[in-house]
Design a protein around this nucleic acid. Structure first.
Lengths: 192, 192
DNA sequence: GTCTATAACGAGATAGAC
DNA sequence: GTCTATCTCGTTATAGAC
């Protein structure tokens, strides 16, 4: 019996690569970086993920699926819309406090250089987030807990944009409070 | 007399490199890309800019200075604060309509991989923008044309964050209207 | 100021042993 | 499943001719 990995190797590869992409970008990390950190060789990585494009795609699908599960978790709580929005903001804050950018926000910056199949997942991520927010905002409007001036769709797109941008700007300052301040000001204008 | 360039060569290099960075990122373009587009050799570029770090720094300083001049232009008009904010949003929209990301927004994503001197300019860009916005918002509040709930500084930071994020998200969709919708929703919550 | 030529390195990827 | 070894290519950068 050959030596067994202490945990699922593909998952460990994805964990390391994910962090590297979130901190350095898809064009800012290499198979060598991942291999060195895991103490394996580049060839070993190619066994699990044929190429960088396949690794990137797997990364994004896992991230987007997990984000969807987190949204389902928020829904399961049956809380009023403003609390759901606060929980949504916390998802972003948790990523940032790890000194990471949102994976798909990072890849949105590099969009023009990405393999086609990775580009498609970037759009899927934003679409799913916008749909979820739109529904929460409409529920809140019906319940009288949220007062959005324009369309719920436009407000949802503003929220995604503002939170992605707040992460983008706050990370160079290594200042989560900067993100928190922007989030508060955002929700104050929408929920107030 | 040697052949004369049709226009200032360093400026032409900066123009091309700037667009490439805005569309592909600092880690997504090379000297070879710039040289090919200008019809010169890589060695020729090194004569004008010693290395990629120096080219990047020159790029950012020119961009930040130009942005500052554009803000001074807006101030020169002596318009009320809401009109100044509209003009400010237009600066971003113009960049996006060229299918480019804000230069410093792009470099904020790649921040961890940048040479130190380029990192410093990223912060300078955001600082100067926030200061300008903070002043406009305070002027507007005094004149009664703007009603910001929290501090002008936090609102300024929200505006920078939201506009950077709106560019980041809208560009993969190649949809300037997506940016416009987010901008309108943003200002509606702040100026309303 | 721009060129040719090349050095030095790292990236992504593959073949084949174990 | 992971390794060693190697290949090919692109990238940054320099030396030196014109």
């Amino acid at each position: 019996m050959p030596a067994t990995a202490t945990r699922d190797t593909p998952a460990a590869i994805l964990d390391t690569a994910e962090r590297l992409v979130q901190q350095r970008g898809f064009n800012g990390f290499s198979y060598a970086d991942v291999a060195a950190e895991l103490g394996v060789t580049k060839a070993g990585l190619h066994y699990h993920f044929a190429g960088k494009a396949e690794l990137g795609e797997a990364l994004m699908n896992r991230y987007t699926d997990r984000f969807g599960e987190a949204l389902a978790q928020i829904d399961a709580g049956e809380r009023p819309a403003p609390e759901k929005l606060d929980a949504y903001v916390d998802l972003y804050a948790d990523v940032l406090s790890d000194e990471r950018m949102c994976l798909c926000g990072m890849l949105a910056a590099e969009y023009g250089t990405l393999p086609e199949r990775m580009q498609a997942v970037v759009l899927r991520f934003f679409d799913e987030n916008e749909r979820w927010l739109e529904r929460v905002l409409e529920d809140g409007r019906r319940a009288g807990t949220v007062s959005v001036t324009g369309s719920a769709r436009d407000a949802a797109r503003l929220i995604v944009s503002a939170l992605e941008g707040a992460m983008l700007v706050a990370r160079p300052y290594a200042d989560v409070e900067r993100f928190r301040a922007a989030s508060r000001a955002l929700l104050a204008g929408l929920v107030g």
